[in-house]
Amino acid sequence: MRIAYSPCPNDTFVFHAWAHGLIPGAPKLDVTYADIDITNNLALRGEGPEVLKISYAALPWVLSDYALLPCGGALGRGCGPLVLIRDGTGDPAFLSGRKVAVPSERSTAYLLFRLWAARKVPAGVGEIVVMPFHEIMPAVRDGSIDAGLVIHEARFTYPSYGLSLLADMGSWWEEDTGLPIPLGAIIARRSLETKKIADWIRASVEYAWAHPEASRDYVMEHAQEMDPAVAQAHIDLYVNDFTANLGQDGYAAISSLLGRAAREGLVPEFDEKLLTLA
């Protein structure tokens, strides 16, 4: 079975057991490691693997062909995207007319940013530039862009680039809704036995928690020279109860985010019944 997910520690931690043949009855995986912008576009074109990790923001475009699985993804609290700048200021108006880098035009990070900016930067930001997430902080540091919307381990490492936090999209979302932040979704083609795939993913998550040392080499092999302590902090933050089961709060958060975005014309209208497995 073909699958695509990022080389980030949370994904390699979650899928280690299945990728290494440790889940009884699960098919062998052919893994593609790719940035979220790449996996979003693979799903949008319908050319991707049978199972993918994508942004929740891209979900409304693909729900007719792909089912959202209730496990394996990234959703939580205190883990939202950050807006970073080189010189310290806490005033969102700084972004008016500025050049801002984002990790994907259909990333959840950018969707949250658009919802936030509509309220906090009424004059509007300037140019939006799409960059691989690991290139954004160096670009802000070097002055080639004015601000960057960052995800993943950047939450832990941005001070080492001499950058300042302008706004935390996750904190804004949680204060505004009281709900967790839906970031990355795991989807599978509807033509497959999606409930079985969900069971295999959940078994992989549970194996990872039961044997945390087993995945360490695999995680660090793909962690792009990340410090082991940062990789562990990344896992601790992004792999949580919602990774094993979205549950009522998880589905409420997804429905709230995408419903609000649809009402504001940022994503297509969609049938909420398609969010859950039949």
Rank of each mutant, 00 (worst) to 15 (best):
I23K: 00
I186G: 01
S255G: 14
R260E: 15
W209V: 10
Y207T: 10
Y33C: 04
L277W: 01
A231D: 04
I23W: 07
I181S: 01
F113R: 00
S256T: 15
L112Q: 04
R45C: 08
P9A: 11
T243N: 07
D271Q: 09
P182F: 00
L192C: 11
L237D: 12
G178D: 09
V230Q: 04
F15M: 10
N41K: 08
K273L: 10
L111M: 09
A210N: 13
R77E: 15
L183D: 08
M169A: 09
L275I: 06
Y56L: 05
N40Y: 02
Y56R: 02
P182T: 02
A244S: 14
G46T: 10
L44E: 12
A67Q: 02
D176S: 09
G72V: 08
R119F: 09
I201L: 06
G259C: 13
M169R: 01
W18N: 06
A19D: 14
A26V: 08
L183E: 11
V51T: 06
R2W: 09
D30P: 03
V140S: 03
S55N: 13
S6L: 05
F13Q: 08
M137Q: 13
A139L: 10
L165H: 11
C71D: 03
I85Y: 02
I128N: 01
S191D: 14
T194L: 09
C8A: 12
Y158A: 01
A17N: 15
A208M: 05
V121G: 00
L258C: 09
S96D: 05
C79L: 11
M220E: 03
G178P: 08
E127Y: 11
F15N: 03
K195E: 11
D37S: 07
G80S: 12
G25W: 09
A208D: 03
F113Y: 10
D11Y: 04
S255W: 02
H16C: 12
D199R: 14
H16E: 14
K28D: 13
P132W: 08
L52F: 04
M226I: 14
A167E: 04
L257E: 06
W116A: 01
G73F: 00
H134C: 05
G21T: 15
S164W: 05
F270Y: 14
A101Q: 00
S191A: 13
